[in-house]
Structure formats: C-alpha cells, structure tokens
C-alpha cells in the first residue's frame, strides 16, 4: 500500500497576530512508533498538531505528506469533540460519508466502529446528551471508521475522570495495534509513558528535545525537559 507517511515538516513556522507560536522547525514523522508531544501550556503543542493535520496553514515552510490520496487517511480527535445534533450512529455515518466511503458500506462500518469503542449500546442516543467520556469515545469511533493511517489526538483526556481516561487509552492502544500511527499531545506524563514510544518536547515553539520514551524520562537531555519532567517549570 502506498502510505501517506512519512510526514515531513520543512522549515515550518507559524505566527498569528504578530506573535510567533512555532519557530521554524524541521520534523519527520515515520510510520510505527507512537509519538507523544509534551510541553507546557502555550508551548505550541496544539498549533503544531493543527499544522500537521492541515487545519492551519504554516506561515513559512511546508507540510508534506509522502502521498496525497483521494480521501483523507488522517483523522484528529480534539480536546472537546463537537457532535452533531443527531444520534451517535448518525455522527459516525456522517464522518465516513464525508470521507467518501460508498453508501452501501457506511452503516456496517459505523456499527463496527461503535462496537470497537464500546458504544454499541448508545448507537441510537443523541450524541450531545452522552457523557464527556462517551462523546470522546464517539469521536474515536468517528476516526476508527475511517481506518486512518495517522491519528492526531489533542489532549484527548484533559477533561475526563480516571475511569473515562482508561477507556480512552484502551481505544488509543487499539488504534496502535491496528497499525495507525498515533500522534498525541498530553499533559499527563503517566499517559505519555503508557501510550508513547517517543517524545517530542516543545518549549516556547521550538523542539527542545526528541527522544525515545525509555530515554526521555530517566535522562532528559535538555535542561527544559529535565525541569519539566521533575515538575519544576523553569518559567514559573
């Protein structure tokens, strides 16, 4: 299969309102290893993911996928998913219809996706009245139905309790097992350890460090990352 990875960011920067949010950076994301983006609030994690996903256009440089297929093979799950005012099942169907999946397969794929995230029982319920954790699993089902090659997750469990967080993490693991490349930002170092293979550490719009997870936590190479891991924020 002709994959969309690796994803290359070449001298990509982003500025808004006269403020630089991402300094020019070069970054390559390969298939396989799950990438966790760490950094303090305002370090540029969300903006970097939106640049990669294509929601923001870089101010300079370019974001290049190795191939551009006829339909999107990447998906994103936001901190606060937006659900349409229709049933959970209809929300998944809407997403796969938008992705160009033939009508005949939509219902089957949508039901499989709900099954996968453990929401089969809520298929007929209005999506907006589901709990926060259920809505986030529904957002994951929307992505699952597309079988994306890359899944971006922007602090997917930031608003959730520990039980719901465990359920979300289980689904993210399932994506990984199914061969989807995970790119996730998080505030939780525990979550980074549980789900990540490598860390990209952002500090004030720059990649301060990129390292395998096994190396990053015991021996962070950059002083900023070392302080972050110890929980002592140098800018506080």
């Amino acid at each position: 299969m002709n994959g969309i990875l690796p994803l290359r960011l070449e001298r990509v920067s982003f500025a808004a309102g006269g403020r630089t949010i991402i300094d020019p950076l070069d970054l390559t994301l390969e298939a396989g290893a799950s990438t966790v983006i760490l950094g303090a609030n305002g370090a540029g994690k969300s903006v970097l993911m939106r640049l990669m996903h294509g929601l923001l256009a870089p101010s300079t440089g370019r974001v290049a996928w190795s191939s551009e297929g006829p339909r999107r093979r990447q998906a994103m799950v936001f901190q606060r998913p937006v659900m349409l005012r229709r049933s959970a099942l209809a929300n998944v169907v809407y997403a796969i219809d938008a992705a160009g999946v033939p009508v005949g397969q939509q219902l089957r794929l949508a039901r499989e996706a709900l099954q996968e995230v453990g929401l089969a029982y809520a298929a007929g319920r209005p999506a907006r009245v589901l709990s926060g954790g259920e809505q986030q699993r529904l957002a994951l089902a929307r992505a699952w139905a597309l079988h994306p090659e890359v899944l971006f997750l922007d602090e997917p469990t930031a608003n959730l309790d520990p039980g719901a967080t465990r359920e979300i993490e289980a689904v993210i693991k399932a994506f990984d097992v199914a061969g989807t490349k995970i790119v996730m930002s998080t505030h939780s170092l525990g979550q980074a350890r549980r789900l990540g293979d490598e860390v990209i550490f952002l500090h004030q719009g720059r990649v301060a460090e990129r390292a395998p997870i096994d190396r990053f936590f015991p021996q962070p190479a950059s002083p900023e990352a070392a302080a972050f891991v110890k929980g002592e924020l140098p800018w506080a």
């Binding site: 996903h53 929601l55 339909r71 999107r72 998906a75 994103m76 936001f78 998913p81 937006v82 349409l84 005012r85 229709r86 809407y94 997403a95 938008a98 992705a99 929307r142």
Partner: peptide, 25 residues
C-alpha cells in the same frame, strides 16, 4: 465558531458544511 474546525477536520467544506450547520440549528 463551534463546528468549523471539526467539520474541516472531517474534510467537510463549503456548501456542505453550511448545510450541515443550518440543519443542526
């Protein structure tokens, strides 16, 4: 304001996005 980013992420643009929002509200 609420839907735009999510719809664009799903690959929904232009008239289709507008109709989706109108129907939802």
């Amino acid at each position: 304001r609420e839907y735009e980013e999510q719809l664009r992420s799903l690959g929904v643009h232009g008239l289709r996005g507008a109709l989706t929002v109108l129907w939802d509200i």
